[in-house]
């Protein structure tokens, strides 16, 4: 069992998401930065889909009510156990009764806390992921919440530390071709190639909003299913890259699709960060 003493700005229970319900309007949700989430699980020998916690900007404090092994991945936050700082991206052994505080990151936004065995949280439609868009899944964690530990069997491969590329103030992402080419012209391609977009403060788990007005045709597309990473362009031209809690259908034309590594980096991008797109696999 762990007890949340302070959730920090936002602490959400996540697993790899809710699959198989898109046709009912239910999106997949799951961690915003999937790579860091699965890495945290790997460091404590969990399966990739074990239930963990996504933390926004550190500040999370918990009490270990049992001996545990945990790992924090995603940013360079310290993992402070009873006042003693350990690093992130490594497994940490914690004794029953210890207080664990996750410090504020100097770079990046989101940390993933994995506990050996995973957390035991009731699933909604097959997943314990908190979807901030639909409200499905557990509520954001609050002080006093008690979370039981699951006892999933460890996987064989063990790593005790992982080298990481932390996200800084300038981010490069690969962009695959989108489905609505006819809405954008060659001028838009040139603009995208030459522009450093800027991450807006109203970005969240639904989408990363970027400043940088792209030219597009006027009008709306007929609503169609979206994917994580879709770079939607609303009428004002400032694109939105869809993250984990994206709405399953959308009516804005999609210029390109951010590849999975790029999505993970965008999920760590702070407001004000610069984003450059590298078009990969585009004709002409």
């Amino acid at each position: 069992m762990i007890e949340v003493l302070d959730p920090g700005p936002l602490a959400l229970v996540e697993d790899l998401g809710r699959l198989g319900y898109a046709h009912l309007g239910v999106g997949p949700s799951g961690p915003a930065d999937r790579r860091s989430f699965t890495l945290a699980n790997r460091l404590v020998r969990n399966r990739a889909d074990a239930v963990g916690i996504e933390l926004l900007l550190g500040g999370f404090v918990m009490l270990a009510r049992a001996d545990l092994e945990l790992a924090v991945c995603g940013t360079d936050s310290d993992v402070v156990v009873d006042g003693r700082a350990h690093g992130s991206h490594t497994s940490v052994i914690v004794s029953e009764g210890a207080e664990v505080a996750i410090g504020p990151p100097s770079r990046g936004l989101r940390n993933y806390l994995a506990v050996r065995g995973g957390l035991a949280v009731d699933a909604v439609l097959g997943s314990a992921a908190t979807d901030t868009m639909s409200g499905l899944g557990p509520a954001p964690l609050r002080a006093g919440d008690l979370i039981a530990l699951a006892a999933t069997a460890p996987v064989g491969v063990s790593v005790d530390m992982a080298p990481v590329d932390l996200v800084g103030s300038e981010i490069s992402v690969d962009l695959l071709p989108g489905p609505h080419r006819e809405w954008f012209g060659i001028e838009t391609d040139r603009f995208v190639d030459a522009t450093q977009f800027e991450v807006d403060a109203d970005s969240n788990r639904i989408g990363v909003r970027l400043s940088g007005a792209m030219q597009r045709r006027d009008g709306e597309i007929a609503s169609e299913p979206m994917v994580r990473g879709a770079l939607q362009v609303p009428p004002d031209g400032n694109p939105i890259a869809l993250l984990a809690d994206f709405p399953v259908t959308g009516g804005y034309p999609v210029y390109g699709i951010v590849d999975s590594g790029g999505i993970d980096r965008l999920a760590q991008a702070r407001p004000g960060a610069g984003v450059r797109f590298f078009r990969r696999g585009w004709e002409g």
Binding site: L19, A22, H23, P28, S223, E224, P225, V227, V248, T249
Partner: peptide, 22 residues
């Protein structure tokens, strides 16, 4: 497509005139 339960497909979603296979 959903009822065909094709291996490797996690979800199928339709819009007005587009279907996406995940």
């Amino acid at each position: 497509l959903r009822e065909a339960r094709i291996d490797g497909i996690s979800d199928v979603s339709g819009g007005e005139s587009v279907v996406v296979v995940y």
